[in-house]
Amino acid sequence: MHQLRQITVLGHSIRVAVRQGTGGGPPLLLCNGIGASLDLLEPFVDQLDPELTVIRFDVPGVGGSPDPRMPYRFAMLAHGVGKLMTQLGHDQYDVLGISWGGGLAQQLALQHPRRVRRAVLVSTATGSLMVPGSPKVLRKMITPQRYRDPHYMRSVASELYGGVMRHSPHEVLHVMHEHSRIGSKRGYLLQLLAGAGWSSLPALPLIRQPTLVLAGNDDPIIPLVNARLMHRLLPNAHLHVFDDGHLGLVTSAEELAPVIHEFLRD
């Protein structure tokens, strides 16, 4: 059962979902992609073993979290997430970040090395210093229009997300619109600004936690070479390449959830 609540962190109201697990291990904190609410990852959470406690949240300006009063950076957001986990009663936790949320997950691992036990980085890269997708793809990604216009989303799904969307672009409506809440345009812009100029590349050797790098072999937004680079530079990393695209964590949840759970159990 998913418990939804609003928690005030550093003066901001944050929408949080907690699925209490049957086991006693550390919880898994999920950090979502840009513009996406916590609802988007519910199909993935449903595939995870019920023994695992899973925590999701909406960053300020997304989903059910109101706009922040001022711009923020990854370091500031990671500080707030640490406060959130403390309020929820967790001194130690694992973190999973997808796409933009993968940058936040890396920042959390760097900033809170004693609290973040393990990290899972999905369809993500090292920020401003990375091998980018094509400019044509990135132009479509930088706008929130795909979250607001289902017809536009369907028209760009194949080119933007790759993987199963190549032959079933209509599935994007089920993935992105039935399981998501739309945030504000300002919230989307502030998420973009949070990562502007940020890069984990020089700091990757400092992330000592066991890390699972998951990447699709057909990801137009984050080319696979980025995952291989991260795998090479992280001291304690395992790379798993799956046959899907940028949204594989959701569209291939049945395949990837057991891989992730096995990594967290080791």
Rank of each mutant, 00 (worst) to 15 (best):
G61Y: 09
G80E: 14
L38R: 02
G33T: 11
D46K: 09
P50C: 01
L77R: 02
T53H: 05
P43C: 04
F44Y: 09
T86E: 15
L77S: 03
E42Y: 14
D58R: 02
T86C: 07
I55Y: 10
G63K: 09
F74C: 07
G89W: 07
V45I: 12
L48Y: 06
G23F: 10
H79M: 10
P71T: 09
M70Q: 15
Y72G: 03
V59K: 08
L48C: 13
V62W: 07
V59R: 08
G61V: 01
E51A: 13
P27V: 06
T53W: 06
K83V: 15
P27L: 02
R73I: 12
G35D: 04
V81W: 00
I34C: 10
M76A: 14
G21I: 04
D67I: 14
T86A: 13
G64F: 11
D46T: 14
I55A: 05
A78T: 06
I34G: 07
A36F: 13
R73L: 13
R69L: 15
P26R: 00
D46W: 13
G23N: 01
L77W: 09
M70H: 15
S65P: 10
L48K: 00
P60V: 04
K83A: 15
F57K: 02
D49F: 09
M70P: 07
T22Y: 09
V81T: 05
S65H: 04
L77T: 03
R56H: 05
P27M: 02
I34M: 11
S65E: 00
G61E: 01
A36L: 15
P43G: 05
N32T: 11
F74M: 04
L88G: 11
G63F: 11
A78R: 00
G23I: 00
L41I: 13
M76E: 15
R73V: 15
P66E: 07
M76R: 01
V54T: 10
V54W: 01
L52W: 06
P68T: 02
T86K: 10
Q87M: 10
V62S: 01
L40D: 03
K83D: 15
L30T: 05
G63Q: 13
L84K: 00
A78S: 07
P50F: 12
L38Q: 11
I55C: 01
V45A: 00
N32P: 08
V54Y: 04
Q87D: 14
Q20W: 13
P27Q: 02
K83Y: 14
G61M: 02
P71V: 10
R69F: 14
P26W: 09
G89V: 06
Q20T: 13
L88I: 14
G25D: 10
R73F: 11
Q20H: 12
F57A: 09
G63D: 03
S37H: 06
V54K: 00
A75C: 02
P43R: 02
V81K: 00
R73S: 15
I55G: 01
D67V: 12
P26E: 07
F57E: 09
E51V: 15
P27R: 04
P66D: 13
D49L: 08
P50E: 05
S37P: 06
G64Q: 08
